[in-house]
């Protein structure tokens, strides 16, 4: 039988602390009360966008450690990534943090792929505290994947806005009163032959659908407060809803679907189809959603981070945009 990539974590590893910080534009987000820190400067007080990106990661990781009442030397491993070439922002931040470190890349799905990987490490009991997460900085990412910032190119309505922000958490052994990782589904790369990098939502929706379907099929009878995708945006999210409706997946007791990217900037039209970037799902999942789990508002949710696996070069060479989605099921007792 073909493996579905779904795993249950018997040890129920708990997310014991999280921290989220964002840039100045993200103040307009309806999620902003749950962001731990909002920078006034989009370069995070640094000389270049990339240095600012790195600083944001370093600051937010430090915040997650402090908020949990830990010290950096307690961290067994940092699993994190971003979207910039060779992941220098995360690599450089890890140089300052000086914890054991492994870079993770699943594009905008890194927020969840890092948490899933951390869950496996916890399950082995070889590690006690693993820090996970992802970040993006608008200018550094847009200039790599789209156009030079100076160029001021206009985007079509399907275009999305890369979030400046990072979300990090610390996963440890089970603790009552803290949300824990119940199960996860590792996605497979899907390609719907989409080629437009200014419409990544449409490209990612089938990957999200595939992962959701696989996860729910393995957890029949479970009732979820909601299923939340990462950064499909308003456009991609409507495609996902169509896919779900036409397939009847909703019969698995989920009637509440949400998308972090579509909700991120509220109804601000200037952000077009919504938010994207590795920092989009990371800040929403580990900021507001984590806070609401902790407060007991939600009992069981499925987070499905989505990633478009293109590079500027692959796009220029006419390649299609393969996509991936990883799902993690968080529970609160």
């Amino acid at each position: 039988m073909k493996k579905t990539g779904t795993y249950q974590f018997a040890s129920k590893p708990s997310i014991v602390s999280t921290a989220v910080s964002v840039g100045p534009l993200e103040k307009v987000s309806p999620f902003h009360p749950h962001f731990d820190f909002i920078y006034e400067d989009e370069r995070i007080g640094q000389e270049t966008n990339e240095k600012g990106h790195s600083q944001l990661i370093e600051d937010t990781c430090n915040m997650a450690v402090t908020k949990g009442g830990f010290q950096l030397q307690d961290i067994d491993l940092l699993l994190a990534g971003d979207l910039v070439n060779e992941m220098t922002p995360t690599n450089f931040a890890a140089r300052q943090l000086a914890t054991p470190f492994m870079g993770m890349f699943s594009a905008c799905a890194t927020s969840v792929s890092s948490l899933i990987t951390a869950s496996f490490f916890l399950e082995t009991k070889l590690m006690d505290k693993v820090m996970f997460g992802a970040a993006s900085q608008h200018n550094a990412v847009e200039r790599q994947f789209r156009y030079p910032i100076e160029y001021g190119a206009q985007k079509p309505p399907t275009g999305q806005w890369t979030v400046t922000g990072g979300g990090y958490g610390i996963l440890s052994h089970h603790q009552t009163g803290k949300p824990y990782v119940h199960s996860a589904t590792i996605g497979q790369v899907m390609d719907c032959e989409c080629t437009d990098p200014l419409d990544m939502g449409s490209a990612m929706a089938p990957a999200a659908f595939d992962t959701i379907q696989k996860h729910l099929a393995q957890n029949k009878g479970t009732s979820y407060d909601f299923v939340m995708t990462g950064d499909l945006g308003k456009n991609g999210f409507s495609i996902l809803q169509e896919l779900i409706k036409s397939s009847g997946v909703s019969s698995y007791l989920v009637d509440n679907y949400r998308d972090a990217g579509a909700e991120f900037y509220g109804n601000e039209e200037k952000f077009l189809s919504g938010a994207s970037g590795a920092g989009c799902s990371a800040t929403v999942y580990y900021g507001p959603i984590y806070a609401e789990l902790l407060a007991g508002k939600w009992k069981k949710i499925l987070l499905v981070a989505t990633g478009a696996l293109l590079s500027p070069l692959s796009f220029q060479q006419g390649e299609t945009i393969p996509c991936i989605a990883h799902a993690v099921e968080l529970s609160m007792e």
């Binding site: 534009l25 608008h138 200018n139 910032i149 100076e150 001021g152 190119a153 200037k270």
Partner: peptide
């Protein structure tokens, strides 16, 4: 001249 005088930033449409 523009590069000396200004700092580039993202354009909100």
């Amino acid at each position: 001249i523009a590069a000396i005088l200004f700092k580039s930033k993202g354009k909100v449409s």
